[in-house]
Simulated scan of single mutants.
Amino acid sequence: MQLESLYDETRKWFFLMPPIFGPLQFLFDAPFGRFSPSNDSIFLVDGIKAWIVMELVSPITFITVLYRGPYAAPLSAMSTPQVILTSLFMIHYLNRALISPLQTPSRSKSHIVVPLSASMFNLANGALMGTYLSSPAASAFLAGALSRPSFWAGITLWACGFAGNILHDEVLLDIRRKSKAKGKRSENKLGKEHYAIPHGYLYRYISYPNYFCEWSEWFGYALAAAPFPALMPLTETMRTIQPPWLFLWAEVLLMIARAYKGHQWYHKNFPEYPKERKAVVPFIF
């Protein structure tokens, strides 16, 4: 009962915190990547190692809670839709936490506050997602899901978003590979990256297609995994909204400011930057 109470309390705060901290990011630059601090501070950590550590928190917590949490059950007791959704979550983080960063030739240093705050977010999110997927609520919703069109529409959207995320990240990685080959990174004594204007695919329309594709990915996942949130009073919404939708909610609110700030940075640093591009949503924002 204590674990169930902790689950409900965490779910409530996971709903409330993004609308508070998300807008605050419009006021300052998150100290990593292109906005990494320019001083050689002891609080700066290796960008690739920090990324791997903070992203591994989510799948490790997810698996731990899935099998040791308040609704823990053996793999044999999980339905096929539950196994599919568990696999998709782990595939995403296998790429995000290991494959992608290990393919990255270099990454700007990050202020220690970034991996620490991201680890806290991933700890909560991994616990919520693992608890939900093993819960009676998930079992009830996913009963008969294999014959439900919305389930397969969600899985398809997840796959398209996942593929799009990898595709557009590869465009950025290619810029880094070429700059490293030309020795441009060595020109910066503080270890910051060389940046250039990305082109191709959805970069024709927006500055951050990798963000847009990740939102599409998790929208599809939520569509397949949980009932669509109903319009209710705030207190009732906090009690009923399920973690897959909470994850999407938090991602959009916490990432949209970073996309906007990065979009402004491109325009400031590249006078020839395409004027028709939006920040993160094609033709809209």
Rank of each mutant, 00 (worst) to 15 (best):
S108I: 02
L253M: 12
T104H: 05
W218Y: 06
Q103Y: 09
R177W: 02
L6F: 15
F62L: 13
G164V: 05
Y201R: 05
F28E: 10
E251K: 09
T64V: 10
F285K: 03
M90G: 10
A145K: 09
A226K: 06
Y195Q: 04
A163W: 06
E170Y: 12
S135F: 09
H263M: 02
L223T: 10
H267T: 00
P101K: 05
R204W: 06
P81T: 03
G183F: 04
Y221Q: 01
W249F: 03
I52E: 11
P243V: 10
T156Q: 04
T80F: 13
S150D: 11
T237L: 15
P244S: 03
A50H: 06
A163C: 02
N188Q: 12
R96G: 06
I84P: 12
V83E: 09
S110M: 14
V171E: 04
P209H: 07
P233G: 15
P81S: 08
L16S: 08
F62E: 05
V53Q: 11
Y205T: 00
R277K: 02
E214G: 00
I52P: 11
F35R: 04
M1C: 12
R11F: 08
Y203C: 01
F228D: 02
Y203I: 00
T80C: 09
L116C: 11
S76F: 09
S216G: 14
E187D: 15
A137L: 14
I112F: 01
N269V: 05
A279E: 03
L234N: 14
Y71H: 06
L248K: 01
M129H: 02
W13T: 00
P81M: 01
Y260A: 10
S79R: 10
F270E: 01
V281A: 00
F162I: 08
S36P: 07
L102E: 04
G130A: 01
Y201H: 07
W215Y: 10
H168F: 03
T61I: 15
P105Q: 08
H92K: 14
E193S: 12
Y266G: 01
S179V: 13
I63N: 03
L6N: 15
F35N: 12
M78Y: 08
W215A: 03
R11V: 09
S106K: 10
P59H: 04
Y273M: 02
A124L: 13
